[in-house]
Design a protein around this nucleic acid. Structure first.
Lengths: 119, 119
DNA sequence: CAAAGATACATAAGAAAATTATGTATAAGC
DNA sequence: GCTTATACATAATTTTCTTATGTATCTTTG
């Protein structure tokens, strides 16, 4: 899920998938809980992903062939690692590019400068 | 509503209120249809607001005391102008600032540079 | 001048995506 | 031993948008 300490929840809606794909495109293998912690850390707790939003999304991405999973036993606990498929890697790139473009458009609308360039 | 030609609809969720408040904070008095056209024009049709999303939002903002309305007759047609209240003006400022901050956070998450400054 | 498209409002049914709550279970820290 | 952190999962509800529909006037174009 998305529990947002700093931003109104409506603002963050729809960005979860982009965030997850970005993290997976950088780290190759991550498990759910790890993703929530990484986002919290990187955003100074401004964006906090909740499990109720994350796990269903991960399951959906798996069903769509965007990620594959590998379940590992850590002591008696399980950990489910997610990694991008080839399709997923393409999709991640597209999503991030789309978001960068979206930010540019919003900057124009809201008179924020300078615009963001995705290189 | 939001019919988005260019962006996946999920991406834009939650930005409608920010956009509307921004436009009203610049133009003082706008009517619904005018807002849809202005957004289309400013974003090169990348973001197209649909009536099914816009009108309910405007009614909600009015119920919350963020905007007031003035109905004007244009020939035999009516036009409903919306303008920010004092509360609304504050709210608009907050919302825009929040969005700018959100963009900065997302830039960090997604490695997009440079970051956006809201001056 | 008739038809099509643009202007201008409104609402309701449905879908999508999150929140909130709940559940289970192990490991670590105090 | 109790609390907090780790680690998964799902279900009910809410929010927010999409899609569809409705009404009506004005303008453009063939």
């Amino acid at each position: 899920m998305y529990l947002c300490v700093m931003y109104s929840s409506e603002l963050i809606k729809g960005t979860l998938k982009t965030i997850v794909l970005k993290l997976l495109s950088e780290t190759k293998q991550m498990y759910g809980y790890e993703i929530t912690q990484k986002v919290k850390e990187l955003t100074d707790s401004k964006i906090v992903i909740t499990e109720g939003a994350l796990y269903p999304l991960l399951h959906q991405l798996e069903a769509e062939g965007i990620v594959t999973t590998e379940t590992v036993n850590i002591g008696k606990r399980i950990r489910k690692y997610y990694s991008l498929t080839q399709t997923g890697t393409e999709r991640a790139k597209d999503k991030i590019y789309e978001f960068a473009d979206f930010i540019n458009t919003m900057n124009i609308l809201l008179d924020l400068k300078p615009s963001v360039k995705y290189v």
